[in-house]
Design a protein around this nucleic acid. Sequence first.
DNA 1: CGTGGCCCCTGTGGGC
DNA 2: TGCCCACAGGGGCCAC
Length: 263
Amino acid sequence: MSRTRVSRRDVIHTVEGESGRIQGKDLLAGSRIERLARHGKQLAILADNGRGVCVHLGMSGQLRYVPAGKSAERGDHIHCRWYVDGPLGRGQLIFRDPRRFGGIWVFPDAGLIERRWGKLGPDALRITAAQLRRAFAGRKRALKAALLDQQLIAGVGNIYADESLFLAGLHPEASCSALNKEEIAKLARAIRATLRSAVAAGGSTLRDYADGSGQAGWFTVQHRVYGRAGQGCVRCGKRLVGVRVAQRATAFCPGCQGGGVME
DNA sequence: CGTGGCCCCTGTGGGC
DNA sequence: TGCCCACAGGGGCCAC
């Protein structure tokens, strides 16, 4: 990163070990990027001098890379711009976030990122049945609430929680402790399959989501239950039910998702 | 331990 | 046409 331009300071956060006014070097100006990392919904840009920044997109955040020469990205709510100049090319990395639920966290050393990520559950894209069993052990919460809890499983949000539960045939309000071993294994498979398909389709663009190159995602056309309360189930035709679980809109099929609840 | 409520913030779509 | 309200891919905090 050669330099950075911050238009809104309040989207940049410091963490333990970092103090004082945020400087360019905190945002990796002058650093050589060594690798990128991800755990659940957390992203990290890691430099070879040990520094690193985390990015979380929240609800409306976008991270966009625009190669030099392409028309400069315009628009409101661009809070941070990195001017990248390295062996792989020149361009701008742009952080835009209208609602500002997302943000950027600066770390003086990458070890602190690992420590922070250690508090999250296992990554959902690769979650195993055994890991899910451990996450659910001794918990009576609703399945959907557990899926949304990043400390238990990292990376499942509202859309993919509903879609995974439908695929696994499980009721969103069933208790974690009500599932048997096979049902948990089935849910783990459903989570992995759902996320894999969603990634392959480029994500779910409900309104304005776009990937790093600005492309919208088309997984929305594969949504079976999310946003479809009141409509017919694609599998059995029954009317999908809409409820709120853990303060989030939740849709499920009363016919296909009886798993986990006592009738 | 778990839940519900409230908050952070902007944009949009529907109902009147 | 315009105004107001509800709601939206997330998550932290607090009272109970």
